[in-house]
C-alpha cells in the first residue's frame, strides 16, 4: 500500500516536472534547469563522496573537462553534434579520472581532499594558458541554442537516468562494495572486495556525471572560460547539495539540490548583496545540526515505524560530536 502511494506520488511529481515548461516563464525555467544540473553534479559526487566516503574536492575539474571537450568538438573543424560531443566529454573525463584516481585514491582523508583540489586548480590554469586549444582566458564560443526547453528536458532526462543509476548502484555489488569501503576499508578488503578497483570506478562515475553537467552548462551558456567552468563554487555546490539531502542515499542529492536551489534563489531575490554570506551561514548551520543530511529526518527511521525525528535530535547531533 505504502509503496503504491509512493509510486503514485512519484509519477505525479514526474508529470508535473514534464509539464513544467508550459506552466512557468522561461526565466523561471532557467532556475529549474539550474536545479537539475546541480542535481546531476550532486548525483555524481554522491558516488565517490557519499557512497564510497572519499571527500573529493575537485570534481569541478571534470565539469570543466566536459564543458571544454563538448565545446571544442562542436566548433572548429569538426562540428560534431551536441550529444556525441557531450558523450566524448564524459568519456574523456572518465579516462582522466581513472588515470588520476589510481594514484590519488591511495591517499586518505585531508590528503585526498587537497590532492583533488590541487588537480582542479592545475587544470584550471592549464585551460587558462593553453591558448592554441582553449583560447586562454578569453574562452570559446559554442553555437547558439536558445530553446530553454531543450536544456530543461535534457537535464531532466539525465537526472532521471541518474536516479535510476543510483538506485541500481545502491543495490548492486558495486554499490555494496563501495559502502563497505566507506565504513571500514580493512573490513571491506577482508570481505573480498577489490578496494582499488571499486574506488576508481566510483570516482570515474562521479566524473562522468560532472562532465555531463559541464557539457550541458557550456551549451546553455554558449561562452566557456576557465574562470567560469573551473571555479570551486561548483565543487562546493555539489557537495553541499549532497550533504544537505543526505550523502549515500538515492534521493538525497536531488532533494538537497532542490533545497539548495530554493534557498539560493530566495536569498538571491531578497538579499542580493548578502547572498553568499547567507549561504555560508546555511552551510554552517547544516553542518552543525544535521551533519548527515535531510534524509536522516525523512528516511529510514520513519520507514521502519520507529520513533520519528524530533527536534531534540538536532542537539543530539551536536552532543555526539563535540569535545569537552
Amino acid at each position: 500500500m505504502k509503496k503504491a502511494a509512493a509510486i503514485a506520488g512519484f509519477l505525479a511529481l514526474l508529470a508535473l516536472l514534464v509539464a513544467l515548461p508550459r506552466l512557468v516563464s522561461s526565466y523561471k525555467l532557467l532556475t529549474y534547469t539550474r536545479f537539475l544540473i546541480l542535481a546531476l553534479m550532486a548525483q555524481g559526487w554522491n558516488f565517490i563522496g557519499g557512497y564510497t566516503g572519499y571527500a573529493a574536492f575537485g570534481n569541478v575539474a571534470y565539469f570543466g573537462i566536459g564543458a571544454y571537450t563538448t565545446g571544442l568538438l562542436m566548433i572548429g573543424k569538426w562540428h560534431v553534434p551536441f550529444f556525441p560531443a557531450l558523450a566524448a566529454g564524459a568519456l574523456l573525463s572518465a579516462l582522466v579520472a581513472i588515470l588520476l584516481g589510481l594514484p590519488i585514491l591511495r591517499l586518505k582523508g585531508h590528503y585526498f581532499a587537497i590532492a583533488t583540489l590541487g588537480v582542479a586548480e592545475a587544470l584550471s590554469q592549464v585551460a587558462d594558458t593553453w591558448d592554441s586549444v582553449t583560447e586562454g582566458s578569453t574562452g570559446i564560443d559554442l553555437p547558439l541554442k536558445t530553446e530553454g526547453e531543450f536544456f530543461y528536458y535534457t537535464a531532466l532526462g539525465f537526472v532521471i537516468v541518474g536516479l535510476l543509476c543510483t538506485a541500481a548502484f545502491s543495490r548492486s555489488k558495486l554499490g555494496n562494495g563501495c559502502v563497505a569501503i566507506r565504513e571500514d576499508q580493512d573490513a571491506a578488503r577482508m570481505l573480498g572486495i577489490n578496494t582499488t578497483l571499486f574506488k576508481v570506478i566510483a570516482y570515474a562515475l562521479s566524473a562522468v556525471f560532472a562532465a555531463l553537467a559541464g557539457g550541458l552548462t557550456a551549451y546553455q551558456n554558449i561562452h566557456v572560460t576557465p574562470g567560469d567552468f573551473f571555479k570551486i563554487d561548483y565543487t562546493l555546490q555539489m557537495i553541499i547539495a549532497t550533504i544537505i539531502g543526505g550523502a549515500g542515499t538515492v534521493l538525497g542529492p536531488v532533494l538537497g539540490a532542490a533545497v539548495f536551489q530554493l534557498l539560493s534563489t530566495y536569498v538571491w531575490s531578497k538579499f542580493l548583496e548578502l547572498h553568499p554570506t547567507i549561504l555560508g551561514v546555511i552551510i554552517v548551520l547544516f553542518i552543525v545540526f544535521l551533519p548527515r543530511g535531510l534524509m536522516t529526518v525523512l528516511g529510514r527511521k520513519r520507514q521502519r515505524g520507529e520513533r520519528p525525528f524530533r527536534m531534540s535530535d538536532l542537539l543530539a547531533n551536536v552532543r555526539a560530536h563535540r569535545v569537552t
Binding site: 555494496n176 559502502v179 563497505a180 566507506r182 565504513e183 580493512d186 573490513a187 570481505l191 572486495i193 549515500g248
Partner: peptide, 23 residues
C-alpha cells in the same frame, strides 16, 4: 576482528550480504 568492524550505516542483512557477495 577483535574490535568489531561492522558496516555501521548498513542493516544487519546488508552487512552479511556483503560477505556473501564477495566471498
Amino acid at each position: 576482528f577483535q574490535v568489531v568492524k561492522p558496516l555501521r550505516q548498513l542493516t544487519v542483512r546488508e552487512n552479511v550480504a556483503t560477505g556473501a557477495m564477495f566471498g
